[in-house]
Design a protein around this nucleic acid. Structure first.
Lengths: 103, 103
DNA sequence: TGCCTTCATAAGCCATGGCTTATTATAAGC
DNA sequence: GCTTATAATAAGCCATGGCTTATGAAGGCA
């Protein structure tokens, strides 16, 4: 599948979006994520696998635990794909950025 | 469901992305889309319903036909949601835009 | 070594969703 | 009015995916 497809499928699930929101507050272990959501630890692991394969999440071993965190570069493919059809928004962003710079 | 959820679910399906790519070349009737893809007309109608409810597509009656086209404003909710977690990209966009302006 | 914690994988269940064919409603043209 | 074309809806089929429990593998510590 195209890469933007993996990203979109990964983000289409509400539980995976909840994981992203959790990780936005800082790196977390799997158990920590599982404790903050109403699903089992294996379910979290499965979701993290999907997010990782989509490039949205990174993990670094830390002893017996694994610290997961948001991959800042993971959204590139999706942005590129979206800009193919909603590219006008890029111009709007540019205008906004210029405005910001002027203030 | 949150609006960004509808948008993500809508774009997660490859057939719906193909419809978006087709509509990017200009407004199309349902039959025209169905002819360009290996699925039936009812399937296209079902997909268009999902895309419309997500705000990604607009339709205007034209006789017995309906012309569908991309809604340029439909991506706002998704951009906002993405920027909550990948907001650094906005800074990158700003830098890029500034650079463009400088050239 | 033995025990506990942490995490990934396996297997199976079940709801969801994308597809089909059949049908209905509306508009255009004879 | 009748026929044709276009598109939406209904009903049903089936694969996919998200969840569970059970199990296994690897690290830290007494």
């Amino acid at each position: 599948m195209a890469y933007e497809g993996r990203v979109l499928v990964a983000l289409a699930d509400p539980t995976r979006r909840a994981i992203i929101e959790k990780l936005a507050t800082g790196g977390c272990s799997v158990a920590e994520i599982a404790r903050s959501l109403p699903v089992s630890q294996p379910a979290i692991s499965q979701h993290l696998k999907v997010l990782k394969q989509a490039g949205l999440v990174r993990d670094t071993p830390s002893g017996a635990r694994r610290i997961y965190s948001i991959d800042r570069d993971g959204l590139g493919p999706l942005r590129q794909w979206l800009d193919r059809f909603w590219g006008d928004q890029l111009a709007a962003f540019k205008a906004l950025a210029d405005l910001d710079g002027a203030i």
